[in-house]
Design a protein around this nucleic acid. Structure first.
Lengths: 323, 323
DNA sequence: GTCAATCATGAATTCATTTCATCCGTGGGG
DNA sequence: CCCCACGGATGAAATGAATTCATGATTGAC
């Protein structure tokens, strides 16, 4: 509803000229010829029906009216400049915003990030994690899909758990989804015996509910199926909406969790967490890098993605170690 | 020196769209098609390398980043709008700014202005008077010329004393310059006799110095010449840089002034000032209406000019009366 | 289920902006 | 004191940015 403004090009030409009190300098600043400025100012004067400059011999002087509105004009453009700067700073060449789901961020990305920072100290990496993706949504629903798309639009690079199908986005698989039971060595030593998968019936099962969200079946069901056994109470035991919580529980010796070993490679290497069985079950879902087409073009994004994929490759080549 | 802004058209399209959360409405506001808005926003996103909107089914949502810079953007455009409004209000269709030299304003224009206001109550007439024209400048100098031109650029209509030669301006002669001696009736009654021009030698001469400025000779010299007499001390007596001051002195009975009777038609009609001699000397200078080409096009200017000229015509037809 | 509403998209078009070439007048250096 | 280089004005031509048009896709609403 704002009253219509005169062409902004003309306004800007006027502002610059008034600031320099010189069309030539204004032209210089705006990277056009002096003729363009002269035309623009005459056009503006025409539009407003007001003289803005007194034409002197080889110089110009501001009209009173022009003088009086100049501060407002300058402030206006200054505000616009700030607004644009605000955006540009967020996307400055050396600023990289990475989004990751909470578990991946805290258990995989953050432990490795310091190495990237050492490698590229000039890049300002900002990690943003949020859980809107993980609020209870029907598996593979539009809602989940859209929240990923939306998030990917907000950051340069998004690392999330999903099915890898995000049309219009640039996608790389970061880690394939493998699951295997994990528990603390203390539990293994002091608890009921745990030699064969069937021994699991005597243990507390900790549930990482991502499986329910993305696969329609729990991780435990999948793994036990693959192991060829049936568990009488496969859904019993504590449930966690985030992998990281289930993992913490396992670390505390509260039970056995079926989840992605890649998320605990540090613990596996240190022995604070162990995988009692060799069987790893690959599932169709996985961790993916998602990047919107705009961000994908940025060079820092390319650098970081390459580094991430390399890290993941090493992870896969030497599972259970953080190299 | 301000960092370069993205094309302002795109910024404005974004601002409007963000405000309405609708491209269609924004398009409506800006009098373009929705397609134009869509293009502009995509272009801006391209430029900044940032998504500004999440595209939903039939609606759009602001990106966090867009959200955060929107207030600044709005303020910026609001400032610009105010700046332009400031100018436009000064030149609103019903606002008329008239400039006049101090003497003409106070002794001729103002006494008549109320009639115009009664005639056109819808017009907001603003009178601006200033004396930069009357600072001591060589007669007919560039400085004087330029100050008139400059003033004429600041107002809609300028009524000044001068030679009527202002190239590029629209000119009308308001009043021809006639001079005649004037004094208070008291002085005429109680002072030395004043029947013939030669009697003037016994009186104090009050000098309106405009004559020196514009004609190179004082008004008294011109009049005495035309009267065919020589005055031994034609430059003696008080000098005034403004007619109005010399006239006030004459009203106070301090002496006799040679000046424009049109400036004192009210006093002449009332008898508070009298012209002892019938001889009126016409000089080449006069009062002119000057109007810059931009202002000259405005209809209120035309109305006011016509009225002024009519007033002046009546003045001339019935000298010594304010009708 | 169908319709209407909203946004996307690409080619064509319009027209705003800029440049080019030239002119003008003078202020200041030689 | 003279002249020329500088800053601005100007009009036609060229450029290219902004807009429209025509069409498609998708879905929310009735």
């Amino acid at each position: 509803m704002p009253a219509s403004l005169p062409p902004l090009t003309a306004l800007r030409a006027f502002e610059a000229t008034a600031r320099h009190l010189s069309m030539k300098k204004a032209a210089n600043e705006l990277n056009v010829t002096a003729a363009a400025i002269s035309h623009q100012i005459q056009f503006l004067e025409e539009q407003l029906g007001v003289r803005l400059f007194h034409r002197r011999n080889r110089r110009i002087e501001l009209t009173e009216l022009a003088q009086s509105c100049l501060p407002m004009l300058r402030d206006g453009f200054e505000q616009l400049r700030q607004a644009v700067d605000h955006i540009r700073n967020q996307r400055a060449a050396d600023v990289l915003t990475v989004g990751a789901s909470p578990s991946l961020a805290s258990r995989w990305l953050m432990p490795r990030l310091h190495r990237f920072v050492l490698l590229h100290p000039e890049i300002d990496v900002r990690v943003s994690t949020q859980m809107r993706q993980f609020t209870r949504l029907p598996s593979g629903s539009r809602g989940d899909f859209e929240s990923v798309i939306q998030w990917a639009d907000e950051v340069d690079l998004l690392a999330v758990f999903g099915n890898g199908h995000y049309p219009g986005m640039q996608i790389d698989q970061l880690l394939p989804l493998e699951i295997t039971p994990l528990c603390s060595p203390a539990l293994l030593a002091a608890g009921p015996r745990l030699k064969k998968p069937t021994d699991l019936t005597a243990h507390t099962l900790l549930h990482d509910d991502r499986g329910m969200l993305y696969e329609g079946r729990s991780f435990w069901e999948r793994w036990l199926d693959a192991a060829g056994i049936r568990h009488p109470a496969v859904a019993s035991g504590p449930h966690f909406t985030h992998s990281v919580l289930a993992i913490e529980a396992a670390l505390a010796g509260l039970g056995i969790v079926a989840t992605t070993p890649a998320l605990v490679s540090g613990e596996l290497a240190r022995g604070t967490l162990v995988a009692p069985f060799a069987l790893r079950v690959a599932l169709p879902s996985g961790y993916f890098l998602v990047s919107n087409p705009l961000a994908a073009r940025r060079s820092v994004v390319g650098v970081f993605r390459a580094w991430l994929l390399d890290e993941a490759r090493q992870e896969h080549a030497a599972p259970g170690s953080i190299a």
